[in-house]
Design a protein around this nucleic acid. Sequence first.
DNA 1: GCTATTTATTTAACAAGTTAATCATAACTC
DNA 2: GAGTTATGATTAACTTGTTAAATAAATAGC
Lengths: 134, 134
Amino acid sequence: MALLRAREMVMSRFRPMLDAHNITEQQWRVLRVLDESGQMDASQVAAKANILSPSLTRMIRSMTERGLIGRGRDDNDGRRVMLEIAPAGAMLIATVSPHSHKITQQLSEQYGEEKLATLLALLDELAHLPDKTA
Amino acid sequence: MALLRAREMVMSRFRPMLDAHNITEQQWRVLRVLDESGQMDASQVAAKANILSPSLTRMIRSMTERGLIGRGRDDNDGRRVMLEIAPAGAMLIATVSPHSHKITQQLSEQYGEEKLATLLALLDELAHLPDKTA
DNA sequence: GCTATTTATTTAACAAGTTAATCATAACTC
DNA sequence: GAGTTATGATTAACTTGTTAAATAAATAGC
């Protein structure tokens, strides 16, 4: 699949950075979502970070242990788990973001900014195709 | 990542088909590679199917047990493991291929054939960007 | 108010991604 | 030709993807 190979390429640029800070690609996505959107319940985080809830449940455990995120129950709905970024997580974001942006920019320049914009638009359209039952 | 979401969409169309035949997406890729290219050593298969060798090693065990593929050593190089498609695998390919093509075609029509061609070209180009050290 | 149904999360079980380490065989050097 | 290095595959350990089942809390009907 062309999508796979392209993703491989992109991630190979970012992996060294993430490895240097001992976090996985998925943990990075969760941190970014929480950093951008503040407190959110687990389902929303999973949707925004494209992670399935069972995976997220597992990640919550290790990430709270490392002090990257905080976790609590929703007062109004005892089922919901509320997540928020914790100090260590915020610091990590602050440390890594400049690197991340630099890598993104390099990639964009090397590939071509217009092409990238076109590609992103096409991907977005594909991702939002109405379900099979046309 | 836009690539992730797009891939999710595409695979959601194919997953029911694969589930119905009890094979994973990766097994399907291995079978297709072996069906198209005949006998090949494990490294080549891994590269063509975008699967890492440790994953392939695990898959070989279960797939040979199910009679989907055959496995043997290379006579000229005792390190290499040669793989080929086995009868059950060929039959599965023959059974599933029509479905697969139909799904692909539906998707292509729904998305737009020209757009799809553009997208594939862009993805291919991205996947083949020279390594970071420009 | 109490059961039945939905909804959010978790657990379980298995397949695969990922990195590092190990093992076996080739190829190379002297 | 013995010792070293390089290469292909495997194993190990950990994380995540994926589906199905189980839990727990909220909502709906009666």
